[in-house]
Simulated scan of single mutants.
Amino acid sequence: MLQELIPFIDRHPILSVTWVTLLIGVILTFIKNYFSKVKEIIPTEAILMMNKQQALVVDIRAKEEYKKSHIIGSINVEKNNLKNNKLYELEKHKARPIIIVCAHGVSSLTFAKQLYKMDFQKIYSLKEGISGWNKANLPLAKGKKK
């Protein structure tokens, strides 16, 4: 097998470099996530935390998106509030587990990491956000809620 690998690399150097780069990227991502202080959780883990640990779900999407549909019991704290340092709503919940939710799980991870730097210790990000919640066919509330 190794005898076939060298000629393949000689014939396809760009493909080989691309493959190695992708492999390194995947490995580094796994290592980074493993040692991250903020963990990504799937919807079933979020439900368990909400029921057994009274985790607070914080939806950071825009108010309009939140009003259309949101996780039952969640509160809306727009991500701009972090930039403007308007997190008084969350300050009183520092000791509770907090699950950050966005549309697809990207902004929530960044927001959660920033909260961790602000001494919030039990911070989680919902993997794939509301879209992942929908894929799991879990209920969403409709209408305005604070």
Rank of each mutant, 00 (worst) to 15 (best):
L5M: 15
P7F: 13
F8G: 10
I9V: 15
R11H: 06
P13C: 12
I14F: 10
L15Q: 12
S16G: 03
V17D: 02
V20D: 06
L23F: 10
L23P: 00
G25M: 14
I27K: 10
I31C: 08
I31E: 14
I31L: 15
I31A: 11
K32H: 11
N33S: 14
N33P: 03
K37C: 05
K37T: 11
V38L: 08
K39W: 08
E40Y: 14
I42L: 13
I42V: 15
E45A: 06
E45Q: 13
A46I: 03
A46S: 08
L48W: 06
M49C: 00
N51I: 07
N51T: 06
Q54E: 14
Q54C: 05
A55M: 01
L56S: 00
K63E: 15
E65K: 07
K67H: 03
G73L: 07
S74K: 02
I75M: 09
V77E: 00
E78D: 10
N81A: 12
N85L: 11
N85E: 08
K86L: 14
K86T: 06
Y88M: 12
L90S: 00
K92T: 11
K92R: 15
H93W: 11
H93D: 11
A95V: 14
I99Q: 05
I100E: 03
I100F: 00
V101H: 05
V101C: 08
C102R: 05
H104C: 08
V106G: 02
S107K: 12
S108M: 05
L109T: 06
F111C: 00
F111A: 02
A112W: 00
K113M: 12
Q114M: 13
K117V: 10
M118E: 12
F120K: 02
Q121F: 00
K122A: 01
K122V: 02
Y124S: 01
K127A: 03
E128Y: 07
G129W: 01
I130C: 02
S131K: 15
W133N: 00
W133H: 03
N134M: 15
K135T: 06
N137C: 09
N137F: 09
P139S: 10
L140Y: 05
L140T: 06
L140H: 03
A141E: 08
K142W: 04
K142P: 02
G143Y: 04
K145T: 13
K146N: 15
